[in-house]
Amino acid sequence: MNAVVSAPVVKGRLGILAGRGNYPVLVAHAARDLAHDPYIFAIKDEADQDWSDYDATVVGIGDLSTFIQIVRREDIGAVVMAGGISRRPGIRDIRPTWTSIRSAPRALRALLSGGDDGILRAAVQMLERHGVRVLGAHEIAPDLLGQTGPLGECGPDRADHTDISAAAQAAIALGRLDVGQGAVAVGGRVVALEGLEGTDAMLSRVAGLRAEGRLRSRSRGVLVKLCKPGQELRTDLPAIGPATVRNAHAAGLSGIAIEAGRSLVLDRAEVIDEANRLGLFVTGLDLPAKAPST
C-alpha cells in the first residue's frame, strides 16, 4: 500500500528549480493549491515552459552564487527540484559561493564527475550547507505518485509478469551502477537497459530491434522503471507520462510497470486515456521496503 504523504511545513517562500517538460508546472500548480507562492528558478537552456504567471528568474545550471542571492532576497526556505536536465554542468558553468568552496569541496567535484544520483546528492548537500531545505516534489504534489495495481482498463497477464520480474531485476542491478532506472524485457529476456540518453531513447532502440526482426513478433514485452537502490528520494524519482505510453506502444510492448509510491505518473488522466486507447497496461508494483535515503 502507498504511504500517505502529508504536506510539509515550509518556513519562508517555496522555490522550484525547473528543468524541461511539464513536470515543474504540475508541481507549481500543486504548490499554489497548498497556498504557496512559488518562486521559479528556470534552468538556462533546459526549462521550456511559460513561467510568465510566476515570479521567475533564469539561472545557469551551476550558478550557485546567483541562486543563493535570490534565495536570500526572496526569503526562500525550501526548494523542490523538478524537470529534466539534458546535460551535466561543466567547469565553465560552476559559479560557487565561498561557503561551498570552504565546506563542500567534494560536492563541487561530484557535480563535475559523479553519476546522475551522485550529482543530485551533491546539489542537495550544497543547498543544505546554505541553509536551504530540499523537499521532494512528491511532498508538494503527492497525487503524482504511482499507485499499486493497474491504472487503466488493462492489466498484465502471466507472460507479462515474467517480463516484469526479469526487467525489474535488471533495473535494480543497473541502478546500483547509478546509470539508469529502466529496463525492457521481452519473452522473459532483458533486451534493453536505460542509459544516459533516457527512457524514450531506450524505447526507440527497442522499436528498431523489433523492426529489424531481432525480437520475436509473438512476444511483446514490458518496460519497468524503479528507484535506484539507496537513491536520494527527493530528486529524480522515476517518472512516466503520455509520451512514455506512446513510445512503449511504438516499441511493440504490452505495458509499463513502475514502483508504487516511489515513481511519478505525470499527466495521469492522459496516461490512462492513452493506455486504454492503445491497449497497454500501466501498473504499480509493491516492492519490498527499502531503507530511506537521506
Score class of each variant (00 low, 15 high):
70 I>L: 15
106 R>A: 03
98 W>G: 08
55 D>A: 12
61 I>F: 06
47 A>R: 02
89 P>H: 13
92 R>F: 03
91 I>Y: 13
59 V>Y: 06
42 A>L: 00
55 D>N: 10
96 P>Y: 01
69 Q>K: 14
62 G>M: 09
50 D>R: 12
92 R>A: 15
62 G>E: 03
52 S>R: 14
84 G>M: 05
52 S>V: 03
66 T>D: 05
81 M>A: 14
66 T>W: 02
100 S>I: 03
94 I>E: 03
85 I>V: 06
75 D>E: 14
97 T>D: 01
57 T>W: 09
61 I>R: 08
43 I>P: 02
88 R>S: 09
59 V>K: 07
95 R>D: 04
81 M>P: 07
104 A>N: 08
57 T>A: 10
53 D>W: 07
86 S>H: 13
83 G>Q: 01
96 P>T: 05
62 G>I: 03
101 I>F: 13
70 I>G: 07
63 D>P: 02
64 L>W: 14
98 W>N: 14
87 R>T: 05
92 R>W: 06
66 T>G: 02
46 E>P: 00
84 G>C: 02
87 R>V: 01
65 S>N: 13
46 E>Y: 00
52 S>D: 14
82 A>K: 03
103 S>K: 11
106 R>W: 02
65 S>V: 09
95 R>I: 10
87 R>N: 08
76 I>V: 12
57 T>R: 11
70 I>V: 13
42 A>S: 10
54 Y>W: 05
72 R>N: 14
50 D>Y: 14
50 D>C: 06
69 Q>I: 01
96 P>E: 06
60 G>T: 02
76 I>Y: 07
68 I>G: 12
57 T>C: 01
65 S>K: 13
101 I>T: 09
78 A>R: 09
75 D>Q: 12
58 V>L: 04
60 G>M: 05
106 R>P: 04
58 V>F: 11
59 V>Q: 09
87 R>A: 12
108 L>I: 13
101 I>E: 10
52 S>W: 09
88 R>W: 12
66 T>V: 05
46 E>A: 09
48 D>K: 07
56 A>S: 15
74 E>W: 02
74 E>P: 00
80 V>W: 09
82 A>T: 02
45 D>F: 14
81 M>H: 15
54 Y>R: 00
96 P>Q: 01
106 R>D: 11
49 Q>H: 07
91 I>P: 05
102 R>L: 14
98 W>L: 15
46 E>T: 03
103 S>A: 01
46 E>V: 03
75 D>H: 13
61 I>T: 06
104 A>K: 10
74 E>N: 04
56 A>L: 00
105 P>D: 03
91 I>L: 15
92 R>S: 15
65 S>I: 05
85 I>P: 01
60 G>Q: 08
51 W>Q: 09
103 S>W: 05
82 A>D: 06
64 L>T: 07
49 Q>Y: 00
88 R>Y: 07
69 Q>L: 12
107 A>N: 08
72 R>E: 15
83 G>R: 00
52 S>A: 12
83 G>Y: 00
45 D>W: 10
105 P>I: 04
95 R>S: 15
70 I>H: 15
47 A>G: 02
70 I>F: 12
96 P>M: 02
85 I>E: 00
77 G>N: 10
85 I>D: 01
59 V>S: 06
91 I>A: 13
99 T>S: 10
49 Q>P: 06
102 R>V: 14
68 I>M: 13
104 A>E: 10
48 D>I: 04
72 R>A: 11
94 I>Y: 00
75 D>K: 14
